[in-house]
């Protein structure tokens, strides 16, 4: 098969996912598009030697993560590892100031799934809950729950050991449930029913 045609098919099949991940990383639509285009050109150059037995989506995500780190390094002229690589604590501090997360988000208050089911949260409500997660956890939660990547694939994408993936995922899920709890109380307070 013509390599370009195959590449086009792969990209179009995964375009929403790719752009979604670019948005998680950059947090700005214009930067996300720039990153996406950069990644497509990089990926096409390497596509000929891509091992067809592996998940192409995970492969593209990994290229995107690396491209993102390269860009940030160039732009800020200082390592960005701190935010993404070095532990959740620093990110927590950064995110705490930047986001509208209530302090309770950081406590271990998982909402029981029963509770969520019983109270008829919509799918969009759950999606919004994921969007509100601090970036470090949002990243692994999206890769797992929305993109369906395995722990091993996530580890390769974010460049961290599997143990880190599991702890971030576990924390991220708890935070998500807490965040949903939060959305529900907001809804109950305002009487809105769109969540």
């Amino acid at each position: 098969m013509d390599l370009r045609a195959e590449f086009q098919a792969v990209v179009m099949a995964n375009l929403d996912s790719l752009f979604g991940y670019a948005r998680v990383l950059t947090r700005r639509t214009s930067d996300a598009e720039d990153l996406l285009q950069d990644v497509l050109l990089r990926a096409y150059r390497a596509f000929g030697s891509f091992d067809r037995k592996l998940s192409v989506k995970a492969w593209l995500f990994k290229i995107m993560k690396n491209a993102y780190i390269d860009r940030e390094r160039r732009r800020r002229a200082r390592p960005v590892e701190g935010e993404w690589e070095n532990g959740d604590e620093r990110a927590t501090d950064e995110e705490r100031g930047a986001r509208t997360l209530p302090g309770e988000m950081y406590l271990y208050v998982p909402l029981s799934p029963e509770d969520i089911l019983l109270r008829h949260l919509t799918i969009e409500g759950v999606r919004e809950g994921i969007r509100r997660l601090p970036a470090v956890w949002r990243q692994v939660v999206e890769l797992r729950e929305i993109e369906g990547l395995s722990y091993q694939e996530i580890a390769e994408v974010i460049g961290k050991p599997i143990g880190t993936v599991m702890s971030r995922l576990s924390r991220g899920r708890d935070l998500l449930r807490a965040s949903l709890q939060d959305l529900l109380s907001e809804r109950e307070k305002t009487g809105a029913h769109d969540l």
């Binding site: 996912s17 979604g20 759950v126 729950e145």
Partner: peptide
């Protein structure tokens, strides 16, 4: 919920 989540359309 989770199984029905899809990435946001580009």
């Amino acid at each position: 919920y989770l199984d029905r989540l899809r990435p946001d359309p580009v």
